[in-house]
Design a protein around this nucleic acid. Sequence first.
DNA 1: ATTAGTAGTTACCTAAAGGTTAGCAAGTTA
DNA 2: TAACTTGCTAACCTTTAGGTAACTACTAAT
Lengths: 124, 124
Amino acid sequence: MTTQSDNTEVNKEFTEECTTMLAAVSDALYAIGGKWKLMIIIAMARGNNRFTELQRKVSGISARVLSSELKELELNGFIVKKVTSGYPVTIEYELLPYSHTLEELVGAMTRWGIQHRVKIKSER
Amino acid sequence: MTTQSDNTEVNKEFTEECTTMLAAVSDALYAIGGKWKLMIIIAMARGNNRFTELQRKVSGISARVLSSELKELELNGFIVKKVTSGYPVTIEYELLPYSHTLEELVGAMTRWGIQHRVKIKSER
DNA sequence: ATTAGTAGTTACCTAAAGGTTAGCAAGTTA
DNA sequence: TAACTTGCTAACCTTTAGGTAACTACTAAT
């Protein structure tokens, strides 16, 4: 009698790889999961660095949520808040280098999202 | 007086690209966002196709949530439920080809998650 | 006959995410 | 001087995601 959970060498490696991936994806989702964080980073990478600009660009986000997401992103080392005490005082948010480590992921998600929308449309 | 929102050609393209990306990422998150969907797909790609096996593999998920996530994944064309009416009746979930379009994204997220955990650890 | 495993469902509940409204302190524009 | 903009914050409320526990129907083993 054989089952899918035979303890072969191959199966062990497979199982370990799976566990590693699951832990990694879980970690990633913890840091950048949710509805807004990636979108805010994308908008910032494209020149939207002020509060109101971001709010307009990331459509649907409220001031309250944007404010709290920015705080979390700052806390986790993705962005900095820069206050230039000139005249007038302007507040700008800037991406830190760590944000750029997300480029591959953002690219992959963008490409997938585009093809997914095409697929959904063609199905209707 | 110049501002960051000058209507140069370059700026227009940038703005459009940004809008496209935001819409795409939003679409992607709608389909595969949340705590569990990607993790279930990862587990299934590695030979765990039965309900209880999946529940064990994706640690922390409850039967109720697993059941409802599987239904959503089936509805959205990522998986199929296969009931083999032999003796005994076994129920297996299988990935459909569409799940494999997620490979690039899953890979990117896994790599990012691994390096992120390393970074977090080294900071403590 | 009892216990255990598989594959769930149902009902109920909590916590987290997010939305709405209002307002404030500054500066700026008409 | 009035109205508007920017960059928020506080209080409140709703929605959704997810967790817990109990239960069912079937099979299989002891």
